[in-house]
Deep mutational scan, measured.
Amino acid sequence: MAAGGDHGSPDSYRSPLASRYASPEMCFVFSDRYKFRTWRQLWLWLAEAEQTLGLPITDEQIQEMKSNLENIDFKMAAEEEKRLRHDVMAHVHTFGHCCPKAAGIIHLGATSCYVGDNTDLIILRNALDLLLPKLARVISRLADFAKERASLPTLGFTHFQPAQLTTVGKRCCLWIQDLCMDLQNLKRVRDDLRFRGVKGTTGTQASFLQLFEGDDHKVEQLDKMVTEKAGFKRAFIITGQTYTRKVDIEVLSVLASLGASVHKICTDIRLLANLKEMEEPFEKQQIGSSAMPYKRNPMRSERCCSLARHLMTLVMDPLQTASVQWFERTLDDSANRRICLAEAFLTADTILNTLQNISEGLVVYPKVIERRIRQELPFMATENIIMAMVKAGGSRQDCHEKIRVLSQQAASVVKQEGGDNDLIERIQVDAYFSPIHSQLDHLLDPSSFTGRASQQVQRFLEEEVYPLLKPYESVMKVKAELCL
């Protein structure tokens, strides 16, 4: 049975990233139509530049190519590739079939990587351009969430054990800070992308030097003109047959890092959902379990974690691919890159769409948070109580021993009897502590235990987050809708 299948058929496997999760716009960027249309555009740009620099290419040939950029006979191309065992030459023939007058000058002087690699770089750039505003929107939604809850005390956790208090907004800023680093890295790697350009079979530009009869300047002009037509500021000066596969490492490393950030955020949300302090959106008709109707599973956060793990592992592909590119190139890269580049971007696209949807509907339960604080705060307040007693004339050592005994009794009630923490009640009825009984409410005010959390939130948002989001103001209103 021949390899390949009808990918629109229910009898043929289709990647869930495309069929179930990723956005239509990201799927289109990695589609065959987008790819092969870009090949034709690159052939047109090459012909236009070659004509401008004096090669015998007519206006009629150029116009014929322009008129057929979208006229792609995919069936013919597939048949040609089956016959020739070469995808680029299959599309040269297919393009030439609908451009008979231009057929002889299509791909003039070029090698397969002229269309293959340059198209990949265009796709990487455009895919990054799709991700950047999506990530900015996630940051914006979380920034709104953090600002609104900047002063809401909550129990902090280290080692997932109760620690000092923080605020809900401050905790959210930990998430935002990681995503801001990801946004900066995505922008950097996007701006650092260079075009492969017009380089020939081993990167020496020998074929173009021959076409222009040894004119170095025209060869350099050709490279520059096509690079500018493709919208790049610069091209690699040095290439082998391909652009260095280190570029793929750079791009997928940034995406993998984004995956790590999203995994951490969504894990926190899942843990908070278990504590009943916070939940992701839950639709009115949504079913959490087929057997347990009360369940409210954090399905979206779980999906993000599941896909983020996949995204983090994909960076190993370009690392290994770059390491086995012998001399000017081997074909070890080809099949692998067809999979890992598309999957990385479709996965990143999915987790950003999902995280935006989550961040637009996060639900906080202040009463649950308050109750958990009441359970733990008495123990945390013991040092403040000791200091207040010393100020009232008591002995630190005597007070410490009193607190120690009462704390152990209260802990026994919590752990052995399943009761509430009654340390404060014990202190309130103990005559030894009568000098500070009137101060206990103040000493137990949760806001006095959150330090500068709310001020940190305000400063972080104003100095770091809002300036970073400013270039994306025009796209901030787009909502994230999930079908599944």
Rank of each mutant, 00 (worst) to 15 (best):
Ala3Gly: 10
Gly4Pro: 11
Asp6Lys: 13
Tyr13Glu: 08
Ser15Leu: 15
Pro16Glu: 07
Ala22Phe: 07
Pro24Ala: 11
Cys27Trp: 10
Tyr34Trp: 11
Thr38Met: 07
Leu42Ser: 04
Leu44Ile: 08
Trp45Val: 07
Leu46Asp: 01
Ala47Ile: 02
Ala47Pro: 04
Glu50Pro: 00
Glu50Lys: 05
Ile57Pro: 04
Gln61Asn: 10
Glu64Arg: 08
Leu69Thr: 11
Leu69Glu: 08
Ile72Met: 12
Ile72Ser: 07
Lys75Gln: 11
Met76Gly: 13
Ala78Gly: 12
Glu79Val: 11
Glu81Lys: 00
Glu81Gly: 00
Lys82Phe: 11
Lys82Met: 12
Val88Arg: 00
His97Thr: 10
His97Val: 15
Cys98Phe: 13
Ile105Tyr: 10
Leu108Cys: 15
Gly109Ser: 04
Gly109Leu: 01
Ala110Pro: 09
Thr111Glu: 00
Tyr114Leu: 03
Ile122Gly: 02
Ile123Thr: 14
Leu124Thr: 15
Asn126Val: 11
Ala127Lys: 01
Leu131Phe: 13
Pro133Asp: 10
Val138His: 10
Ile139Glu: 05
Phe145Ser: 08
Arg149Lys: 13
Arg149Pro: 01
Thr154Ile: 10
Gly156Arg: 01
Thr158Lys: 03
His159Met: 03
Gln161Thr: 03
Gln164Tyr: 04
Gln164Leu: 13
Gln164Cys: 09
Gly169Tyr: 02
Arg171Ala: 01
Gln177Cys: 13
Cys180His: 09
Cys180Val: 10
Gln184Gly: 12
Leu193Gly: 07
Arg194Ser: 09
Arg196Gly: 10
Val198Arg: 02
Val198Ser: 07
Leu209Ile: 13
Leu209Ser: 11
Gly214Asn: 13
Asp215Leu: 08
Gln221Arg: 13
Asp223Leu: 05
Thr227Ser: 13
Lys233Met: 12
Ile238Lys: 01
Thr239Leu: 07
Thr242Pro: 11
Val247Phe: 06
Asp248Pro: 03
Ile249Thr: 08
Glu250Val: 08
Ala256Thr: 09
Gly259His: 06
Ser261Lys: 01
Val262Tyr: 02
Asp268Pro: 01
Arg270Trp: 02
Ala273Lys: 00
Lys276Asp: 09
Phe282Lys: 08
Lys284Asp: 13
Gly288Ala: 09
Met292Ala: 01
Pro293Val: 02
Tyr294Asp: 02
Pro298Asn: 02
Met299Glu: 01
Glu302Trp: 02
Arg303Val: 03
Arg303Ile: 01
Cys305Gly: 09
Leu311Trp: 02
Met312Tyr: 06
Met312Lys: 05
Thr321Val: 11
Ser323Val: 03
Trp326Pro: 00
Glu328Ala: 05
Leu331Thr: 02
Arg337Met: 03
Arg338Lys: 06
Phe345Leu: 13
Phe345Ile: 10
Phe345Tyr: 08
Thr347Phe: 14
Asp349Thr: 10
Thr350Asp: 15
Ile351Leu: 15
Ile351Asn: 02
Ile351Gly: 02
Thr354His: 14
Val363Pro: 06
Ile369Val: 12
Ile373Lys: 01
Gln375Val: 04
Leu377Lys: 01
Leu377Gln: 00
Phe379Asn: 03
Ala381Gly: 05
Thr382Pro: 01
Ala392Lys: 15
Ala392His: 12
Ala392Ser: 11
Ala392Trp: 02
Gly393Ala: 07
Glu401Gln: 14
Leu406Asn: 07
Ala410Thr: 05
Ala411His: 02
Ala411Asn: 08
Val413Asp: 07
Gln416Glu: 11
Glu417Trp: 09
Glu417His: 07
Glu425Trp: 14
Gln428His: 14
Val429Ile: 12
Ala431Asn: 14
Asp441Trp: 08
Leu443Glu: 04
Pro446Thr: 06
Pro446Lys: 04
Phe460Asn: 00
Leu468Trp: 10
Leu468Asp: 05
Val475Met: 15
Leu482Glu: 10
Cys483Arg: 15
